[in-house]
Design a protein around this nucleic acid. Structure first.
Length: 772
DNA sequence: AACGCCTCCTTTTTT
DNA sequence: AGGAGGCGTT
């Protein structure tokens, strides 16, 4: 189809393409061929993907039925569907838009017979899987120290992600390899006996379904004429194999990705799939999106300069029509507290001016870094939100309740059986359970069936056990006709879980009860009867496994955002703080040891390109890591960012050090002092050399902790009855909040942020302060 | 079954 | 340091 012809005829199509730049337009409107779109950060990737679909429908008359769009996260999938519907102005329920796992799951539900699964198969989440592997290892009497469950689980998943089944590996490799295969075999048998499917299994089964069932394969070959894949650089071996099988001779692939943003190699993602795609589809058309609509020229220059240090890139250079913007601020903090304080102070500057809390994001390499930042944010009374952490459906109490529901659906689910049997406690202890397990194993029965049939062999225990079995059956009968939410409620009540958590002490208990209520609430939205022939209970349980829910309550509220660099991918913020740029932390020690520096660098690239207007980078010269104070060298990435994009912010060294007499060999700060003047220290010279020497000695086991201390100590002690964060009143400046202290005794000075008079340093002894 | 002590480990995360 | 998980005690 010719684009020009349509611009003149249909105003809707004009609107569809008019806002696109030439490269985007080409990607969106070119005739249907296989296409690979290399989309740089902030270049309008999602836009291209959604517009492409809208274009196909509007111009080429493609039906929603023949489109499949796959993403990695539910969030991305939901967003995509929403934006497509906005563009074409009608709901597109018939279109398959979902995650790899969600799509695989859908196929397996539709073709459970061909996939050789029970109709009511259940999904095992990571936690369930871990437990099951553990039990299997126990059963095989494999030593936990030699074969840690975590490692075995990882290994099994890795095999599945390479498309390998145990029988393909039998009798291969050394002793431990054989043991692993034995574990995989037993684990898989357990899953099959219990009708369970883990995440990797969803993909592998779907792959095998297409591989082994020509009728199914051909059906979908006829159906899906357009297969669109988001974040293609994140696909693993199995996902790629499956995509290839899924695309019939008529299907056109539209893959969007960015090799420079491949940061999940450690979990099996294969950037090479991009090159593979080009080899497997020789005619594939390559489109590069390099114009960036997100960041300032300076930020892009920094990002480009950094990523240029990677080898084997497909090659891209981001550019923008936007202005240069501000220089990137670089701050050398004394320690992690100083760093956090600096971040908070800069946040205040921004917030005083105009900004919203949610404009601000702090990105760090590892979760452990969030604690100090949090502390500082609390003191500063700034609302914040940390991404990541336990999700709703992963919470203990929620999983407990769901175990009861799962048991109603499938009595042979041993994991749920054990969970329901033991929580709340009912006098069936470890010994009885062990007996039951042994009996079940001996007769190759599920725990449920073993308990039912073997009561005699189980001796005295059978009393409490029998009561439990009857209770389950009774609950099943009594709730059979109830709508889902009512069923859930009754289960929570009658299982004794509610009572159990009521008895629990502490503030957690309350939250637990609330979560149980919330679970009932969540169940309500799955009550639409028999949608697409799916049983509401199965539907609900699937949702719980596949979409574990938001990382935290109150999503989307006005708050400063804290997250790892990994979870920041795909997001953008006007103001970004990237903290902890120290060798050993970022790049992480492990990455360096294992030679994964390039992926680390890409992670840094991702971090830089999250920023729209302002980027601030910081590192600490001293940091407590695993409980030990360490001297840190600045990250090597700092050297790789073009220096003309950076401006070093002078530290307020004296604030942190004067009172403790810490003047020791800290190269770099010496000249600055505090107060005006003084050229910013340029380059990062002195930090590096002694940093390396330190690392060498560190590896020999020396602990080079210095007797320094530190913002933390100051903060906790407080002065003359005043504490950090305290509200005070001053006769001429009005009300304010104490931000920090400096010095001791009568020389103590105090930094106060006044509501109407800005931030000031005052001598505590002189200032006529009164607490509020 | 609940509690407390001890040891171990420590990058990143989605489904 | 701090959390998790294992294990032994009450």
């Amino acid at each position: 189809m010719q684009f020009d012809a349509f611009t003149q005829t249909d105003p809707r199509l004009v609107a569809l393409v008019e806002a696109l730049n030439p490269a985007q337009r080409e990607a969106v409107t070119a005739p249907s061929e296989h296409r690979l779109v290399l989309a740089g950060a902030g270049s309008g990737k999602t836009r291209v993907l959604t517009h492409r679909i809208a274009w196909l429908m509007a111009v080429e008359g493609v039906s929603a039925h023949s489109v499949l769009a796959v993403t990695f996260t539910n969030k991305a999938a939901n967003e995509m569907r929403g934006r497509i519907e906005q563009l074409v102005n009608v709901p597109v329920r018939a279109m398959w838009v979902g995650t790899f796992h969600g799509t695989a799951h859908k196929l397996l539900r539709l073709h459970w017979r061909e996939a050789k699964l029970p109709q009511n198969f259940q999904i095992l989440d990571a936690d369930d899987q871990q437990r099951l592997v553990k039990r299997v290892l126990k059963g095989l009497e494999m030593a936990e120290d030699r074969f840690p469950p975590k490692m075995v689980t990882g290994w099994i998943n890795a095999q599945k992600e390479e498309g390998r089944r145990p029988h393909q590996m039998a009798d291969q490799g050394d002793y431990s390899q054989r043991q692993l295969v034995r574990a995989y075999t037993a684990y898989q048998q357990a899953c099959e006996a219990q009708g369970l499917v883990d995440f990797a299994e969803l993909l592998l089964r779907a792959y095998e379904l297409f591989r082994d069932q020509p009728a199914v394969r051909e059906h979908y070959h006829r159906k899906f004429r357009h297969v669109l894949v988001d974040e293609f650089q994140d696909t693993n071996t199995l996902q790629y194999l499956w995509l290839r099988l899924l695309c019939g001779p008529e299907a056109k692939i539209f893959a969007v990705g960015d090799d420079d943003q491949s940061i999940y190699g450690w979990r099996g993602a294969k950037v090479e799939n991009i090159q593979k795609l080009s080899r497997d589809y020789p005619g594939i058309e390559l489109v590069r999106l390099e114009q960036n609509y997100r960041s300032t020229g300076t930020i892009l220059k920094a990002a480009n300069g950094l990523i240029a240090h990677n080898s084997g890139r497909l090659g891209k250079n981001l550019w923008t029509e936007d202005r240069e913007g501000e220089a990137i601020q670089l701050y050398a903090a004394y320690n992690e507290y100083d760093e956090a304080e600096f971040v908070v102070n800069r946040m205040r500057d921004y917030l005083d001016g105009h900004g919203r809390y949610s404009d601000l994001a702090v990105l760090y390499r590892s979760n452990a870094q969030s604690r100090v930042l949090e502390e500082m944010l609390i003191r500063a009374r700034l609302p914040y939100r940390i991404y990541g952490g336990l999700r709703f459906f992963e919470r203990m109490e929620v999983k407990d309740a769901l175990a009861w529901l799962r048991l109603l659906v499938n009595r042979d689910d041993d994991g749920s059986f054990e969970r329901a049997l033991t929580t709340p406690p009912r006098g069936v202890g470890a010994t009885s359970l062990e007996k039951l397990r042994a009996f079940a194993k001996q007769h190759e029965l599920s725990l449920w069936k073993a308990a039912r049939s073997g009561s005699a062999a189980l001796g005295r225990t059978s009393g409490a056990l029998g009561l439990f079995l009857d209770q389950i059956d009774l609950l099943d009968q009594q709730t059979r006709e109830l709508p889902l939410a009512a069923k859930m409620e009754k289960l929570i009540e009658r299982s004794g879980l509610k009572e159990h958590y009521k008895k629990e002490k502490g503030e957690q208990a309350e939250a637990r009860l609330e979560n149980l209520d919330e679970l009932i609430n969540a169940a309500k939205s799955f009550e639409r009867p028999e949608e697409e022939g799916l049983d509401p209970v199965l539907n609900f349980l699937t949702h719980a496994a596949l979409e574990a829910g938001e990382g935290q309550a109150n999503a989307g509220e006005e708050a400063v955002q804290l997250m790892t660099l990994h979870s920041a991918k795909g997001l953008e913020f006007p103001v970004v703080f990237m903290v902890g740029l120290e060798n050993g932390l970022f790049p992480s020690m492990r990455a360096v040891d294992e030679g994964n520096l390039e992926e680390e660098r890409r992670l840094c690239y991702v971090g830089i390109t999250r920023a729209r207007q302002q980027l601030t980078i910081s590192y600490a010269e001293t940091r407590r890591i695993h409980g030990v104070e360490q001297i840190c060298a600045p990250s090597q990435f700092l050297k790789e960012i073009p220096s003309e994009t950076l401006v070093e912010t002078r530290p307020r060294a004296a604030v942190l050090r004067s009172s403790f007499g810490v003047q020791s060999g800290r190269g770099g700060y010496g000249g600055g002092g505090f107060g005006g003047g003084g050229a910013p220290r340029s380059g990062l010279g002195s930090g590096y050399e002694h940093g390396n020497a330190w690392r060498e000695r560190q590896q020999e086991g020396y602990n080079l902790s210095r007797p320094a201390l530190s913002a933390k100590m100051t903060a906790e002690v407080g002065y003359g009855g005043y504490k950090l964060g305290q509200r005070v009143s001053h006769p001429s400046f009005g009300e304010g909040t104490i931000l920090s202290f400096d010095g001791e005794g009568e020389r103590t000075r105090v930094e106060i942020r006044f509501a109407n008079a800005g931030t000031k340093w005052l001598m505590l002894a002189m200032a006529k302060l009164s607490p509020l």
